[in-house]
Write a protein that binds this DNA or RNA. Sequence first.
RNA 1: AGACCCAUGGUGUAAUUGGCAACACAGCUGGUUUUGGUCCAGUCGUUCUAGGUUCGAGUCCUAGUGGGUCUACCA
Length: 558
Amino acid sequence: MSDDKKASLNFIEEFIEEDINNGKHKGRVHTRFPPEPNGFLHIGHCKAIWINFELAKKYGGKANLRMDDTNPSTEKTDYVDSIKNDINWLGYEWEGTELYSSDYFQQLYEYATRLIEKGLAYVDDSTVEEIAEMKGEPTAPGVESPYRNRSIAENLDLFQRMRKGEFPDGSRVLRAKIDMTSPNMHLRDPIIYRIKHEHHHRTGNEWPIYPMYDFAHGQSDSIEGITHSLCSLEFIHHRPLYNWFIEQLDIFPSRQIEFARMNVAYMITSKRKLLKLVEEGQVSGWDDARMPTIAGMRRRGYPAEALRNFCERTGVAKRDNVIEMELLEFSVREVLNKTTPRVMAVLDPLKVVITNYPEGQEEFMETENNPEDEGMGKRKLPFSRELYIERGDFMVDAPRKFFRMKPEGDVRLKSAYILHCEGYETDPVTGEVTEVRCTYYPDSRSGEDTSGIKAKGTIHWVSASHAKRAEVRMFDRLFTDPAPTTHEGKDFMEFLNPDSLRVIEAFIEPSLMDAEVGAQMQFMRKGYFCVDQDSTEDKKVFNLTVTLKDSWAKAQKK
RNA sequence: AGACCCAUGGUGUAAUUGGCAACACAGCUGGUUUUGGUCCAGUCGUUCUAGGUUCGAGUCCUAGUGGGUCUACCA
């Protein structure tokens, strides 16, 4: 019956299935996510995590988490914890305990020694400038270092003394001896070890020399038996070198495959630039809800499931891409629509007095928590003579298609009565509406409406005497430009959105005072929100996760 | 300038590997709705250019054009 169409494979899956079909590694699939612990994970990492862990899952394989910690200057243990936490939060578990490139320092040292013994590596005494100079340009070949043809014995001796810490930082490096005329700059005798008398977050002062990325990453993959080493496009030029080391060292042949990293409009993923935002105080920290970090998005209220769905929808390819934020927001709303309770909160309050409703009287209105899911139950809302509604839900000179409250008009209060607007009061100075006066139809109560009145619109409300005040943080995109880092001659900071954060005071229904930090809900007709960690016992703080779609507002703009 | 990578609606990704170009988001129109939300239906719009191979090309070949990457003792 069902015409189960073949699910299409992305190009990495095609490679993997080809390898499996060829019996390579006995069909084993083992990936890894290799962050450098020098910053927080962001939306780009999110995609890399998704690819590596989902692929392993799909092919019944394993995925390692490996901290690529070969540079002691920038790496910190604090970051390790946040990285592990973020990955777990996204819903993934790595194989065994987390691994570290630094665990392989001894093995790497031996590999380097093996290279020297084969006459494929040499110690170079040149300065940084000299090495750069001799490297040449992409269009012009480089020249060989005067130290290039030292004897194996001398190289061995020098390298051992480097390891013993006999030489000062920067005085010498170990280079692979490949080809100074290669059109691929990475093959022009790349540096594989440098001297750094620096404390490492895990190996302490054990090592005065540290391997470079190219001499650590591929070998670590190999040591761990990684079958498919997935990385972003900019490493494509490193692949010949990656393979060269595997061949010369004759070690397990991991295969590097490059994919285009994911870019999202209005978000930046440069760790350096993100750090600048934090250090300059443009945001409150790495986990500011406006940050494209996983920690930030979590605090903002983006569900992990939404992020995973988003990664799946955006696909895997080799094309440069910028994904519209709308797709991310769709993914977020999609999950939240199903999972969050609806609650009443008025963000921009306007007082309504129901003149024919007895003073001092109160009623409790039953309302469903989520029309998408009856199982989420019902709750009661206090109702009284004075209410707050959204200022934007009242208009003095309303167009015909305005279905909310307007003079002489009827409007339904969600889960309560239908109101008839009798008039309004304004501030004599500013002309601003200060209060709306209405009457209610006693026989129009929700669920038992016999009034026969049909109100076209339904609006949300809170009882003035019962409502609580709360702080609400209304977030907007951090930048005004979809690609703030791509404009030549302009610093990305010039594109910071001055209105990315608007703090307002809102009135919320009393039940919300019980909401715990992290709790998520829909403020009816406004958007999805979550309780921020800055909340206190008597003052809740809510973060706007994402607004609801608003076709009325959209129509008004035209 | 050299090497390498890439090119399909506005955006992103597909196309049984040479056989009627599709899916999602966005847009637009309508329906349902006690959220102008959700949901449902419909609609708009695509193979960078020029040659070539072929009965047949988004797919293969050549050239061009456009975009990206590479010249850290970072990863």
